[in-house]
Design a protein around this nucleic acid. Sequence first.
DNA 1: CTCTGCAATTGAATCGTGTCAATTCTTTGG
DNA 2: CCAAAGAATTGACACGATTCAATTGCAGAG
Lengths: 333, 333
Amino acid sequence: MSANLRDVARQAGVSVGTVSNVLNRPDVVSPKTLERVQKTIADLGFVPNGFARQLRSGYSRTIGLVVTDVANPFFTEVARGVEDAASKRDYAVFLCNSDESLEKENKYLSVLIQQQVRGVLITPSDSKSHQYENLRERGISVALLDTETKNSSQCSVSVDDVRGGEIAIEHLASLGHKEIAWVTGPDTIPQVADRTAGVMRAAKIAKVEISTVRVALMNSAQGTDAVKKILALKKMPSAIFCGNDLLAFGVMRGLLDAGKKIPEDVSLLGYDDIAFGNSAAVSLSSISQPAYQLGVTAAELLISECEDSEDHAHQQIKFQPQLVVRASTTKKK
Amino acid sequence: MSANLRDVARQAGVSVGTVSNVLNRPDVVSPKTLERVQKTIADLGFVPNGFARQLRSGYSRTIGLVVTDVANPFFTEVARGVEDAASKRDYAVFLCNSDESLEKENKYLSVLIQQQVRGVLITPSDSKSHQYENLRERGISVALLDTETKNSSQCSVSVDDVRGGEIAIEHLASLGHKEIAWVTGPDTIPQVADRTAGVMRAAKIAKVEISTVRVALMNSAQGTDAVKKILALKKMPSAIFCGNDLLAFGVMRGLLDAGKKIPEDVSLLGYDDIAFGNSAAVSLSSISQPAYQLGVTAAELLISECEDSEDHAHQQIKFQPQLVVRASTTKKK
DNA sequence: CTCTGCAATTGAATCGTGTCAATTCTTTGG
DNA sequence: CCAAAGAATTGACACGATTCAATTGCAGAG
């Protein structure tokens, strides 16, 4: 059996209260007892029992992170940010993967409630879902990640996806492209909806024609599938903009297999700017997002909300995306 | 405040013990008290407090997963497998990222102990570490992931890394390469050590000369750095074998930047066969591992150990790696 | 030498549930 | 109608850390 607080107290010749103070308010303990007790703790390999702690205090030190796709490097970067920030404040993170399915998302939220997490950071897989209110009623803070919130009753950390869509089209239009394919997932995904809005707005201004090609999931395989649909369009676009980089890699592969040259025959632009981009067959131009920073900021915001829930002002933080030009986009010939 | 067991007992006019029985062993309670208590529970919206429950029972339904690099798609595949398998048995997963640092690993293990996880799945960042015994003494099961164990006192699920190293060199040797660079991380990482062993054994048999190039971390950036060292070798190798695909992508980039052609000037072989491989500048030949399967198997094994710890026989399961030839390796000219 | 005030330390009570020996209630066979 | 067995219920204690009112120790002032 592993040591508990009482064992430490006995061994160090002090009371349990003092050991507890050593752990939670070291400043009230005299330096020499502090040192002695700490040594005993180390000797016995004592680690406080989280349950007991939580039972007494009523709160856990865990948060949940729900993302739509862990296989997407963008989200692993976000997750690293969240984890580093959480770990700094001694929180542990449950990572959950919703695969863009509302059903899986709800299932994981139930699990998180059961685990009594203190807060949840979530990338919604759907724009409207009332489960979050349910969480708040149970005293679990919720912050939206990579999605902007309409109402100011919650925190959110996002990147301006509308602007991202605009930047992309502005870039392609400035290279002379007039027919552009927009390959992306369902509009129920908030980020997709926003990027689409930006695309359409910029297209109107730049007088560019957009052909939308929908896929069910935003991964590489579906990108390759999408190429068939693109080639079947009545007019072959001179540029393709993809909803994320994974899709773009799939599209790239499909195009190359079909004998198309990038960027000579068609320009290709991705979204997320994941690290693999410059190792791709054709180095991929993309819209960059501060993924790690996004994760860190969101975790800090959430934890601060958890701990000072009284005088916490909800914030909506929005980062700006940035164009990164590499080899896959070029002037229309 | 939300209702507790005592409130329910008072309201229903029974003792706390009976309410507890209603929840956990309904068969010993008489039908009519059962019904009455259940109604009271519903009326008060009572939900048992998980902390207290777990404190009393001593067990949680969580496991920890410690990997050396979440940014590596190989590990995200493994993680997906673990999560799916765990979720099927109603376990939640803490994902921790050791970044190949023993210090971070130990810190996370400590956090996991605090959270009273039921078991830990770990990819050791170092071949010798006694912390695991410590976990077992506390009743936390430990299974090794992607690493073979020497002693049979624990479960492990791994891929035959020695054989992987052999396959790689056999492949390159069969293409006529006689001087091969082996680019990899420190030998303290068990997988690296095994692959190195396989490389050396096969090299001896095939009479191939190996130049080892060490990097500190097995990521893409360090791969690019390693190219300088390769180019500085007294004799330029005709083939390069990398410890994982991320390294290989970095090396690929460095070589292309240096004006080398792949595979004409130099063949390049990776390890892990991650999904990006066929989207790379030169489609990457690699040694494939069943990552998802690895995760599923490990999680199932660990959970079965947790639940029948008495009559559980430790197993060491070993998968076989497989050669996948794409465009980056070819006959020596 | 005593008194005061502050710092350090103590340990019993507490959080909400599970357990189990003890107790009460119910049933049944004679 | 009684005794004994079996079923149902009770309630004190345990789990392990936190809290806080009470106590002890100590230095400095008078």
